[in-house]
Design a protein around this nucleic acid. Structure first.
Lengths: 251, 251
DNA sequence: CGTGCGCTTGATAATGGTCAAGACGCGTGG
DNA sequence: CCACGCGTCTTGACCATTATCAAGCGCACG
């Protein structure tokens, strides 16, 4: 994320160049991203259709609700949120996307994005033009299978969230989100117990169907119970079992 | 559904035969179901992989959470609910499936069904073995595209439900469900204003994240406001605009 | 050094849950 | 055909959780 600091002066003048070496073959995320389950020849073909442009700055949009759907996107670094705006102006966050995760698949059904996606911090993105992906999928059964699986996972994750919103208390919801982020960190070989939240309390509330105040109160409560150590966005899980107990997850 | 009444005696003895004539080509649902967007030659090929077995009786399961995933299913008649059971025994209904709709796609990601599906009334089902569908998709770009779109639609619908659960009041949730059922009826050329609910109040509550009592109270309120006429499961929409206003939907 | 935004905390209010009782409908069996 | 019993639905009274409103804190940034 901070690769450019030394030369940020001229990076503003011309497209950045450090991405030349990044490809699916050497990306450290390729074991959890789209290339998963592909042979190296196939990875090369996938790589050929992927477009890497310059990083998204914090609060920039990757796409907006209603935009024509052209591509799905893989997060290489940084974090994004996907959200819909209700017509009375409130915001429903439908997901947070960490490195190695794919977003934009909700645009396929109508050839138009059903939600907006915005960077929560500087983010590098791989763009995968969908028509190319479709053609490639028809040729590479493993890729087709994997993409079906990715979409299916999006469905099951949405259903998890549905259950969470419909059946769980404020404490349980926040605990579940903390566990989810912890698990996704672990998948990327980062600390499962200590991390910085990329999103604001408002975003958390809009994701979990709670108000900022409630989210804040839950964090305070967890801190008082010595389950979490909360310092603004810095989170340290002190009692993972306690957190799991608090989440009281369904399955 | 009642085709067999005259000969139900021998239907119990051997497999029913009236299904012989049903195929994707002549199914009256083919304009809203999987064959949509296929040429008639292609429809024939799709038809060849589809299996039609004897109807599911009310409250029988089509599949259960954790079952091996083999197929996705299209509803030909009747209605099903998909649901997950939380480990404290409560039930989260994740969707209702009417004729022409596809279910089971949440099983693709782990090769195991992430939810259970149960018939709310006698239901005829088309079973589509997934490996065959995958192979066929690789050969028929339109089919691949259409299936991607179906999965994407499932995602956007789940996200609608997420927003509903997270942002809307009990009144709004029930109104939105009534409008959804009304619209799906219209798509099948049935009455948009008068229909019989196939699901119980409990199911509605478990879908909308409400208790039975609240659902019942909302129906009473709507009746009092002359928006709906409710006679147990028989619903008549008296004031569609009022209902839309009450739903206060986001988009 | 002020201004603003994000976060926290407190007091109060409302929505929906819980508990309880009764009505209605339906299938079963006498 | 009616009585019974069970499951589903409705209605009421009360309560709990979370939203709302309001105020204050702290940090970043101009």
């Amino acid at each position: 994320m901070t690769i450019h600091i030394a030369q940020s002066g001229d990076a503003a003048l011309k497209p950045c160049t450090h991405d030349y070496q990044v490809n699916c073959g050497n990306c450290r995320l390729n074991s959890i991203c789209l290339p998963l389950a592909l042979e190296s020849d196939d990875i090369q073909q996938l790589d050929d259709i992927i477009q890497r442009s310059k990083p998204l700055q914090k609060s920039q949009h990757l796409y907006r609700e209603g935009d024509d759907f052209q591509s799905v996107f893989a997060v290489r670094s940084g974090t994004l949120k996907a959200y819909k705006t209700t017509d009375d102006g409130r915001e429903q966050v439908t997901g947070f996307y960490f490195p190695g995760e794919i977003l934009g698949m909700d645009g396929i059904s109508n050839n138009s994005h059903a939600s907006s996606a915005k960077a929560l911090e500087t983010a590098a993105i791989c763009e995968i033009p969908f028509t190319s992906l479709e053609k490639l999928s028809a040729l590479m059964p493993n890729l087709q299978r994997h993409f079906f699986q990715l979409m299916s996972r999006e469905i099951t994750e949405d259903q998890q969230l549905i259950t969470l919103l419909s059946k769980n208390s404020a404490d349980e919801r926040v605990a579940a989100l903390m566990l989810s982020i912890s698990g996704r960190n672990a998948r990327r070989k980062l600390s499962a117990t200590q991390f910085r939240l990329p999103m604001s309390r408002v975003d958390i509330g809009n994701y979990l169907g709670l108000t900022v105040e409630t989210v804040s109160r839950v964090f305070s409560r967890m801190q008082k119970m010595d389950i979490l150590q909360v310092d603004n966005k810095e989170i340290k899980i002190l009692d993972a079992d306690g957190l799991r107990a608090m989440a009281n997850l369904s399955g």
